[in-house]
Design a binder for these strands. Structure first.
Lengths: 231, 231
DNA sequence: GAGAATTATTGTACTTTTTACAATATATTT
DNA sequence: AAATATATTGTAAAAAGTACAATAATTCTC
């Protein structure tokens, strides 16, 4: 047993971190939240928000905590996407990182300083600066995953405000899927699915014909089980 | 910097393991490979094949190595599925485990002893014994993932022999999806997809009308990009 | 070797879903 | 009042999905 313990010791010699890919959406398209690193290594570089995990903290909780520190938001849609474990991905030693993605409504977003973040900013997914570690790979992986998920799960509603127009819904699908959809067919399909409902309200302060506002009907979506997805 | 190093030390105090969910398929249905543990903790218990990762070994390589030791197989379809990181999932300390699934052709399988496995056996996915750690959760997660993937990716061909009958292909879909498909419609659809092709060969040594043997056409599947999947 | 047993193979009509395509409506601005 | 900007709506044709049952080819049994 003594021997076993000694052997074990060499394994308990690595670290694990969490990195979050935080997606947001506005009139400009799909965005990702990056921080300017406040600690070594790569201090000052734009990077995915992440941190090492304390040995006494649960994995999920660690991911949520980072997001909370950064955005002040709780109860955000998060999903674990992949663990990256190349031997040399971190200059300080062997660090596995577990990537999560989070979808937030930009309207609710309140940036906050964090010990590990000197600055925070949204970047269009098509205009990402050079990133340290393997963060670029992680981000691309997250984009692919989001793209794959979006057709079969109602994730877009995590990114849109509570009330939204069909045009916004249309645009977010086109942004994420990088593909165009016919206006009439899109509306027909989304409306006949029953997962969104009219609110009776209209768009205000726009310089053109105001659109009707819709809202997501989570109960209906759940009831339908979302077989086959939205589009 | 000295201070930083000291702080870091408390993080480099965890271990990471890999656990593989190895699926196989035969006339009985979908199977999972379990080992009888050869080391502490839970020695002698049936469990998922897995091991701690050495700090100097890449993640992917670790997962492949375990499978190789166990089955003698190389170049097997493997995919990372999820990382499990509850604080108390391992009695020896904080151990994150990264789960992979592997799909193997039972015909190629040659069981081998490994230091961490006293015994190896296939279990029907519907008849799994009590498992240690959170292996039950991992297994169920893998089953769900396989079920979701199978409609949109040609994974079944990783589980079937090189030459197979349409009845086998039909049965494996029904086994994994836990759902029945009409024989005529199934055949019509799979054949019209173009991803399998006739071999001209027939089944032999069967006690009834022999079936035609087909083979997967990977080139065609790739060319089609598999939009929409098989079923 | 005739009939039984077992699995393999095939088509058609109906329903549903997807696709292609363009004119009109409602608001603000000039 | 006209120009500008975006919102909203329908129809016909094609493709895909669904429901459904009879016949064919082999071995086995007597």
């Amino acid at each position: 047993m003594k021997n076993l313990k000694k052997t074990l010791k060499q394994y308990f010699n690595v670290a694990v971190s969490v990195d979050n890919v935080v997606f947001g959406f506005d009139a400009d398209g799909l965005k990702v939240l990056l921080i300017s690193r406040g600690s070594e290594p790569f201090t000052g570089s734009w990077a995915l928000p992440g941190d090492l995990i304390s040995p006494e903290m649960d994995l999920e909780y660690s991911a949520e905590k980072i997001l909370k520190q950064l955005t002040g938001l709780d109860q955000v849609y998060m999903e674990q996407i992949q663990t990256f474990g190349s031997v040399d991905r971190h200059p300080f030693g062997r660090v596995f990182t577990i990537a999560y993605f989070a979808l937030i409504k930009v309207e609710n977003y309140h940036p906050q300083a964090a010990s590990w973040a000197k600055d925070v900013a949204w970047f269009k997914v098509t205009e990402i600066p050079k990133l340290p570690f393997d963060h670029r790979d992680i981000l691309e992986y997250a984009r692919r995953l989001l793209k794959n998920r979006i057709r079969t799960q109602p994730l877009v509603f995590e990114l849109l405000p509570k009330y939204f127009t069909l045009t916004e819904l249309h645009f977010i699908h086109e942004s994420i899927l990088e593909e165009e959809f016919d206006v009439r067919n899109f509306r027909k399909k989304i409306l006949s699915s029953g997962i969104i409902e009219e609110t009776g309200k209209m768009q205000k302060n726009v310089t053109h014909r105001p659109a009707m506002l819709y809202r997501y009907n989570a109960a209906k979506a759940k009831q339908l089980g979302f077989e086959g997805g939205i589009l």
